[in-house]
């Protein structure tokens, strides 16, 4: 016998279920006055640096129906490409920006919305810049383990072409599932980003 590794196993995932909002966005679900505000609801302060943008979209299932019970979380760098995290060793991130957001889809339309800023570039392991991106994490009833994906910006074509992750995706036609086009809605730069869990238009999900 060799020496045992004595490593623990990660706690197995389970679905967040249809009532994830009770725990993660209780005010939204109707459990009011326990927490003053739902976590991740407000990403911006007046002093946050960077270009204000909106990210909106819906999550679709394999028959083309929009999920009305999904929870989407985002994690992103600040406008200078720094993460507000103790793991960030390159400098100090904007103290006016938490980098984290959480949105329950609208209970009728399923649309999620984030009012945030456009992130700066963050380096890849070898130092090359990654194109600006936002990490998304999606949980819902019927999803047994949270799905990780990324949103890249449609108006960053040159950076996207050089991105070390996008550029090594074998099926080139699928890269477009990660890129959100820029539009103007209500005078606000808006990136529309629908997520398709299954089927022909299936979004790329990562094992990170």
């Amino acid at each position: 016998m060799v020496q045992p590794l004595n490593r623990l196993k990660e706690s197995p995932s389970q679905t967040a279920g249809p009532y994830v909002h009770i725990g993660c966005t209780p005010n939204f679900s109707g459990v009011e006055n326990v927490f003053p505000e739902d976590l991740g609801k407000t990403m911006l302060k007046p002093e946050t640096k960077g270009e204000r943008i909106r990210v909106v979209g819906r999550v679709f299932d394999g028959v083309g129906a929009a999920l009305k019970d999904a929870l989407v979380e985002v994690w992103q760098a600040d406008a200078a490409g720094l993460y507000p995290s103790p793991q960030e060793k390159r400098g100090t991130a904007d103290p006016g920006f938490a980098g984290f957001g959480r949105s329950a889809g609208d209970m009728t339309t399923g649309e999620f919305v984030f009012e945030t800023i456009k992130p700066g570039k963050v380096p890849f392991k070898d130092g090359r810049p990654q194109a600006p991106h936002i990490t998304l994490w999606i949980v819902a009833r019927g999803i047994n383990i949270g799905l990780h994906t990324r949103l890249y910006f449609g108006d960053e074509e040159a950076a996207n072409d050089a991105d070390p992750i996008l550029s090594r995706i074998e099926h080139r036609a699928r890269v477009a599932t990660l890129i959100a086009p820029r539009t103007m809605e209500g005078g606000m730069p808006t990136y529309r980003h629908d997520i398709f869990l299954q089927g022909e238009k299936e979004t790329i999900f990562f094992d990170i």
Binding site: D61, G62, A65, G142, I169, L197, F206
Partner: peptide, 17 residues
């Protein structure tokens, strides 16, 4: 209907993860 059918794409951890 809520499970991806295509394989997950492996992504070495970057600062984003």
């Amino acid at each position: 209907t809520r499970s991806p059918q295509k394989a997950l794409i492996a992504l070495d951890n970057t600062l984003s993860e």
